[in-house]
Amino acid sequence: MSGCPAAAALAACRQAWEQVLAKAKRAVVFVDAACAESLHWAGGGAGRLLEAGALNVKEFSSFEAGAAEQPKAVFVVSSLLKGRAVDIIRDIVSLSRFQYCVVFTAVSHAVHLLAHGAPGGAEPEGGSQAVFEQFEEKLCQWMGNMNYTAEVRHAPLLLAPISPHLFVTPAFASLFPMTPQDLARINSSRPEKKKFGSLNDLDFSSLPPELQLQIRTLVSGLNSLFECLNVREECFAIGTLSKIIAGDLANYSQAKNRRKTAQNRASVIFIDRTLDLTGAVGHHGDSLAEKIFSVLPRLPGHTNDVMVNMVELTALQTKDETCNIIAPGCLAQPK
């Protein structure tokens, strides 16, 4: 592959956030935990939104709202605009006096179509984004005036760049390879003659709908990254879930179109970590990073960062464990 793929991937992460920053001026920004972690590692965190002109940055929670003098809101979510995410947005908008709402979702419109029952999540002809347009109407209803402005957009915000050559996906922290217990649950709803004998017999269509959507969201995010890299990938998989993910990526219609014109080539390896669970959870102290993650507490709301007690580096000395005047440091903190 020509050029530096790591630099291109990092640029893609930051470019995705540029869409959000462009809408942040004079807005209250509500960010969910996974997107906040992505921005945390992409550089700047909440400070980057404030520098872009945001009035405030708040947690994506039903207990938050905008002030009376704040007519604009930006929502940044890593999930589908369905279920709990919709409830939270409705609660926030209903408790506020917004006249202009912009919603960024890290999940593509094609996956939203799949979630709403469209076969294969196929995009309609003409480039219409029906699900997003319907949600824009709901936003206007919740704001109380159909003449107010609402926008719903997709932004590929799933990747968090830990380092130039290491990227993680906070939104998929709970995605875990299937176990025999999962197979038993899947078989419990199937006729006796159609039960699966082993995990290796499973395919995408046999998975629970929630897991299908999670996999398709991951595949869509990977496809967005490969589009930025102009890559035609060759996939290798080790493990049941990895094979399903690799297969779905291979059959994903948008990925097929991308591969026809991509100029670069890359190999992608998917691995079920349950095949190496002993090594994955071991604390051998072989590296400094391993010692840091095993000793220091997790940064609240994050899956890939830790808290560093900064009080020890100051003249402020206190024995009060509840004293939190000095904010904790973290690995992503600028040098």
Rank of each mutant, 00 (worst) to 15 (best):
S2E: 13
G3E: 10
G3T: 13
R14M: 08
Q15N: 14
Q19N: 13
A22D: 13
K23P: 00
R26Q: 13
D32K: 01
A34Q: 00
E37A: 04
S38R: 02
L39A: 11
G44M: 05
G44T: 07
G45I: 08
N56F: 05
V57T: 04
K58M: 11
F60T: 02
S62W: 02
F63E: 13
E64P: 02
A65D: 03
A65Y: 13
A68V: 13
F75K: 05
V77K: 04
L81M: 10
K82N: 10
G83M: 04
A85V: 15
D87S: 15
I89W: 05
I89M: 15
R90H: 14
R97I: 00
F98M: 06
Q99S: 14
C101Q: 03
A115D: 07
A118G: 05
E125L: 14
A130P: 01
A130Y: 04
F132K: 02
Q134A: 15
L139A: 05
G144R: 09
G144Q: 05
T149G: 00
H154L: 01
I162L: 15
S163C: 10
S163R: 13
H165G: 07
V168G: 04
A173Y: 04
L175R: 10
Q181F: 09
N187D: 02
S188A: 15
R190K: 14
F196D: 00
F196R: 00
G197S: 10
S198T: 15
N200I: 07
D201G: 03
D201W: 04
D201N: 11
P209A: 12
L211E: 10
L213R: 01
R216E: 03
T217G: 01
L225W: 01
C228S: 15
N230R: 04
F236N: 06
K243N: 11
G247D: 09
D248M: 08
N251R: 05
N251M: 08
S253T: 09
S253C: 04
N257V: 10
T261H: 11
Q263M: 11
D272R: 00
R273C: 05
T274F: 00
L277Q: 01
G279W: 00
H283G: 08
G285R: 05
D286S: 06
S287N: 08
L288E: 02
I292D: 06
N304P: 01
V306W: 04
E312M: 12
E312Y: 08
T314C: 09
A315V: 09
A315R: 12
L316I: 15
L316N: 08
Q317L: 09
Q317V: 13
D320L: 13
A327D: 12
G329I: 03
A332F: 09
Q333A: 14
P334E: 14
P334W: 09
